[in-house]
């Protein structure tokens, strides 16, 4: 039945929303096939794309909240200023609680990541928007940056003592080499899980919404649509509510994991 409906005219392109496209031109079909060494039509690294647009809007939103919103510097804050203060306090407390007082040096970096992710996630919920954080390139860049920073900080702060992170001194001696191997592997898997968790969550929810959206016009095509269309619209609403939750939670998870990794770098001993 489903296949019939496909051919009838329902179009499923749940992944099209993630396409990166140049803002001021169309990529000629066939002008970018790297497998066949045709790259003259490919995206140039400096070209402004829809990703550029939505990252720019993220920047503007952050500017509006944290700079324009706090313009008054009021002792008794305006609404916007309390939201800005809330965000500041939220991340500040998280860094302090998880990574400790000496982790606060890294608060601006962590806050930058948190702001970018949370605003990208929420802007991505606007219909027609590109969710930049649903792209593995974006999340992997951030996760690798965190990984490299944390590893560097670990070695600079503790020298070779940082390797103690992998040497579980509370375990029986015989088990320690095995555990060390597992710890090392899990350490290097960190950036992978860190980035895929965020991109995967953002992508999956948006794709599911798109699939439900594709079912919505069924009422125009077939009688069964009388039942399917309201259901799919309801499902879109429910998914959207869930996505609002996910948008915040995934930003929170990315940030708190960054704090945990930072804690390991600052205090590597179990």
């Amino acid at each position: 039945m489903a296949t019939e409906e496909h051919s009838d005219g329902l179009t499923f392109h749940p992944m099209d929303q993630f396409k990166i496209q140049p803002l001021f031109r169309e990529i000629e079909p066939g002008s970018c096939v790297p497998a066949e060494d045709i790259v003259h039509g490919c995206l140039k690294w400096y070209e402004p794309t829809n990703a550029t647009l939505w990252m720019g809007l993220t920047l503007l939103a952050i500017f509006a909240l944290f700079v324009l919103g706090t313009r008054g510097r009021a002792i008794i804050p305006s609404r916007l200023q309390s939201v800005a203060e809330l965000g500041y306090g939220f991340v500040h407390k998280m860094v302090e609680d998880v990574a400790g007082k000496d982790g606060l040096k890294f608060f601006p970096y962590i806050f930058t990541l948190f702001c970018f992710i949370v605003f990208s996630n929420f802007l991505g919920l606007i219909p027609g928007a590109l969710t930049t954080t649903s792209h593995i390139a974006v999340t992997a860049f951030m996760a690798v940056a965190v990984f490299l920073t944390v590893t560097l900080v670990g070695f600079v702060k503790n020298g070779a003592g940082f390797l103690g992170l992998f040497w579980v001194s509370s375990a029986p001696l015989a088990l320690r080499p095995v555990l060390a191997l597992i710890e090392v592997i899990s350490y290097f898997v960190r950036p992978v899980s860190h980035s895929i968790r965020l991109a995967g969550n953002m992508m999956a929810g948006h794709a599911v919404i798109k699939v439900f959206a594709a079912f919505a016009p069924l009422v125009l095509i077939s009688g069964i649509g009388i039942a399917v269309t309201p259901l799919s619209i309801l499902a879109i609403v429910a998914m959207y509510a869930l996505e609002i939750l996910v948008a915040f939670i995934q930003a929170y998870v990315f940030t708190i994991l960054t704090c945990v990794y930072l804690k390991d770098a600052l205090h590597p001993h179990h």
């Binding site: 970018c32 990252m55 993220t58 944290f66």
Partner: peptide
């Protein structure tokens, strides 16, 4: 998946770096 279209990676990473740098600067 557009996420695995490696021809867009350079572009995305470039603009991401720019955006993060600007956000960091503003903050």
């Amino acid at each position: 998946m557009p996420q695995l279209d490696f021809s867009t990676f350079g572009n995305q990473i470039f603009w991401l770096a720019v955006a993060l740098a600007l956000i960091y600067f503003v903050l």
